Structure formats: structure tokens, C-alpha cells
Amino acid sequence: MIVIGLTGSIGMGKSTTAKLFAEERIPVHDADATVHRLYAGEAAPLIEAAFPGTTHEGAVDRKALGARVLGDPQALKRLEAIVHPLVRKAEAAFLDRARGDGAKAVVLDIPLLFETGRETHVDAVVVVSAGEEEQRRRVMARPGMTEEAFAAILARQTPDREKRARADIVIDTSQSVDDAREQVRAALTELLLRQARR
């Protein structure tokens, strides 16, 4: 089974690309979705203990938590020390299930793949990119997004050009979804061929 790490900076089209892999019947583990589940369950009491007042009725209040950790590297580290091990546990269970089901390939959708050194835990890295102008247009169109918040998020992320340089395959999402779909199909063909040659 080939484990594909899918990543890309904010606004580059990673979520859409993950859906395109899923359309090709490739199991996808979405780290963001896992965090959402954890914030509504297992992680909430741990986060409340570390950041009092950031939960409401047993679930993390993402806005309150964001206000506490964004722009504070030490607070972010504390949060990551709580959340990352729980995400890895969920990911390991996902990989075990996929192997048991005989999957040929799986995708781990990991937003901070390079930033957390996860590229060494996957067989291939696929980076999605759309160029800086398109990225800015998409991100600034999000409700509540500010220049300050965008800058803070970018500061935490490995620059797009570096991600592209370190990728096994780059998927350009600046055109249509159909165009990206063709690139995903080509990427899968190439990666499965590579795996077969090993």
C-alpha cells in the first residue's frame, strides 16, 4: 500500500484535491476533520485544562481558542502537544483499516506536513498549489479573514515555492476542477507504477 501525503498552503485547493482522490476510491484521512471531531470530544477537556475558558458545553470554541494561540508560538506549541498525538492515533487506526481492506493507496491529508516533519512518514508527497495571487484571492474571500490573520497563518507555513520544490508531484489547482481531476488521475497512475517497480 502506498501512503501519499497531501499538503498545500492555505487557499491552494487541498480540500478539493482530497475529494478528487476520494472520488477515485482512494481512502483519505483528513487531519482537519479529525481535529474537528477531537475538538468536540476527546481533546476538549485537555484543551480546557491548558487554556481555561476556550470550551463551551464540552466542545472547543474555535474562535476563543484561536484568539488565545494565534500569534503566540509558545501557546501554539502547547496546543500542538495536546492535539498532534491524538491525530496520529486516529491516523494509525485509519492506516490499519485500509491495509486490512486491501487498499492499494491511501491519502493522508496533512496541512502542516513539512512543518511537522511528516514527509518522512509517507511514501510520496503531493503538493497542491495555485500561485500567490489566486491564493490571496481565495483566502481573502473567506468570511472574517483579515490581512493580519492571513499573515499569521502564512508565517506558520513553509513557503509554497519550497513545498513545490520538495514535492514528488505538484497539482496545479489554478484552473478548473476537471483539470485538477485529470492531474489527480495522472498522479495516481504514476505513483502506483513507481510503487510496483520497487
Results as ranks from 00 to 15, higher is better:
134 E>Y: 12
87 V>M: 01
127 V>Y: 04
62 R>Q: 08
120 T>R: 13
38 L>P: 12
31 A>S: 11
36 H>G: 14
144 G>M: 00
153 I>K: 02
91 E>C: 02
27 P>F: 00
145 M>W: 04
57 E>A: 15
13 G>A: 10
33 A>E: 09
69 V>S: 00
94 F>K: 00
148 E>D: 13
43 A>M: 01
84 H>W: 08
62 R>L: 06
27 P>Y: 00
72 D>G: 10
73 P>C: 05
59 A>C: 12
62 R>C: 10
35 V>I: 15
116 T>D: 09
78 R>T: 15
71 G>H: 02
146 T>M: 03
74 Q>N: 14
49 A>S: 15
153 I>Y: 01
23 E>W: 13
145 M>S: 06
132 E>A: 12
77 K>R: 15
14 K>M: 08
145 M>H: 08
121 H>Q: 14
76 L>E: 11
129 S>L: 02
18 A>Q: 03
112 L>T: 08
32 D>W: 10
42 E>T: 15
138 R>L: 04
50 A>Q: 13
30 D>E: 13
57 E>S: 14
39 Y>F: 15
52 P>V: 05
155 A>G: 04
44 A>D: 06
44 A>R: 05
147 E>T: 14
148 E>V: 14
138 R>N: 06
103 A>N: 02
138 R>F: 07
85 P>D: 01
126 V>E: 03
142 R>Q: 10
40 A>C: 13
78 R>N: 13
100 G>A: 02
150 F>K: 00
114 F>C: 07
100 G>Y: 02
28 V>R: 00
47 I>F: 00
20 L>N: 11
144 G>C: 00
100 G>Q: 02
69 V>F: 00
139 V>E: 01
131 G>F: 04
97 R>M: 03
113 L>S: 00
121 H>M: 12
78 R>I: 12
137 R>D: 10
106 V>T: 11
40 A>T: 13
63 K>P: 11
79 L>H: 12
40 A>D: 13
29 H>L: 09
48 E>R: 06
156 R>G: 12
13 G>R: 03
145 M>V: 08
27 P>A: 00
79 L>Q: 09
116 T>P: 10
153 I>F: 05
111 P>Q: 02
65 L>H: 05
68 R>S: 11
18 A>N: 05
51 F>T: 14
118 R>Q: 15
12 M>Y: 07
106 V>P: 02
25 R>K: 15
155 A>I: 08
68 R>C: 10
125 V>G: 04
43 A>D: 08
131 G>R: 00
81 A>F: 14
100 G>P: 00
94 F>H: 01
23 E>D: 15
96 D>L: 12
65 L>F: 09
51 F>P: 09
15 S>I: 08
139 V>D: 00
100 G>S: 07
28 V>C: 05
25 R>D: 15
142 R>N: 10
115 E>R: 01
145 M>E: 04
124 A>C: 07
55 T>E: 03
111 P>A: 01
99 R>S: 08
75 A>Q: 07
149 A>Y: 15
148 E>M: 08
55 T>A: 04
64 A>P: 05
118 R>A: 14
15 S>P: 11
